[in-house]
Amino acid sequence: MDIALFSPSSLFADDDDFSSEETKETQQNHVERRHSFPGMELLIREFSFHKLNANLLWPGTFAFAEWLVQNRPLVEGRHCVELGSGTGALAIFLRKSFHLDITTSDYNDQEIEENIAHNCRVNGVTPVLPHIRHVKQYPNLIKTLSFLLKSYKLKNDRAGSIMENEQNGGTHNIGLPWPAFLMSWRRRIGKEDESLFFDGCESAGLKVEHLGSRVYCITPKDQVSGYQIELTR
């Protein structure tokens, strides 16, 4: 894993937040909608009700997609894990648009995994994206992040690229470190939950940096070197 993506905003929304066209009811528990992402339209099957899943696509997903497009060099060429994939729409968009090596994940539930696989197939992503199941709890999420970020080891080729750029005088802006955790933390989460998560990250030895547009980057506090790339906005 070089980078992880997370959009907890998918847990909250109002009915008037939808900008997508509802197309048809496929089953009692599902609805299919066409959603516009930058440069493409995706047909996404969503749960009309599910006891564990956030059910639908919310504005935070599209805001995160726009931010990633504007900062494309930060994620290109990386191995990604998306935590809290929901329908898998963002991961599918990134695979089709960026050709990203990405793994989805969500709660430990067969229906969610099968729905992500369905959405992959109907949008031409085959074979379907690999998937990991996890549980819903901030403390366990923080433990998972801490383990992934602190246990990651740079491959020799990437370590060499970092050293070469440093030896050349650091002519490029510093982009995201290897590895990094990117998350979109949008409105309706609440200050209490926000403090619970971010304070927990700090206590676990992780550094939280706001990159703009309510997008945050989380890395180990003792991480000494980032990967040198040129940012474009």
Rank of each mutant, 00 (worst) to 15 (best):
I3G: 00
S7T: 06
S7F: 06
S7H: 06
L11K: 09
F12D: 03
D14F: 12
D14K: 12
S19I: 12
S20C: 10
E22C: 09
E22T: 10
K24N: 12
K24F: 13
K24T: 10
E25A: 07
Q27V: 08
Q27Y: 10
V31L: 15
E32G: 04
E32H: 05
R33T: 08
E41W: 04
L42Q: 05
R45E: 12
F47G: 04
K51Q: 13
L52V: 03
A54H: 12
L57N: 08
W58L: 01
T61W: 05
F62Q: 08
A65I: 01
L68E: 06
V69Y: 15
R72P: 04
L74T: 09
H79F: 02
C80W: 00
V81C: 10
V81D: 05
E82G: 02
L83Q: 06
G86E: 06
G88H: 00
L90D: 02
A91M: 00
I92R: 02
R95Q: 08
R95K: 11
F98G: 03
L100V: 07
D101I: 03
D101E: 14
T103Y: 03
T103V: 13
Q110N: 13
A117K: 12
H118Y: 15
N119K: 08
C120G: 09
P127F: 13
V128G: 09
L129A: 05
P130G: 11
H134Q: 12
V135F: 14
K136E: 14
P139H: 07
N140L: 14
K143A: 15
L149H: 02
L149W: 01
L149F: 02
L149R: 01
K150F: 03
Y152K: 03
K155H: 11
R158A: 08
A159S: 13
A159G: 11
S161E: 14
S161M: 14
M163I: 13
M163P: 01
E166S: 02
N168M: 07
G170A: 10
T171G: 06
T171V: 11
H172P: 04
H172K: 15
L176W: 00
W178V: 01
P179E: 09
F181I: 00
R186L: 11
G190D: 07
G190N: 06
K191Y: 07
E192F: 10
S195Q: 04
F197R: 07
D199R: 11
G200E: 10
G200T: 05
C201V: 01
E202T: 15
G205K: 05
L206A: 04
L206E: 04
V208A: 02
H210Y: 13
G212P: 05
S213F: 08
R214S: 14
C217T: 00
C217V: 02
T219Q: 04
K221V: 12
Q223Y: 10
S225H: 15
G226S: 13
G226A: 13
G226W: 07
Y227P: 00
E230C: 06
R233C: 05
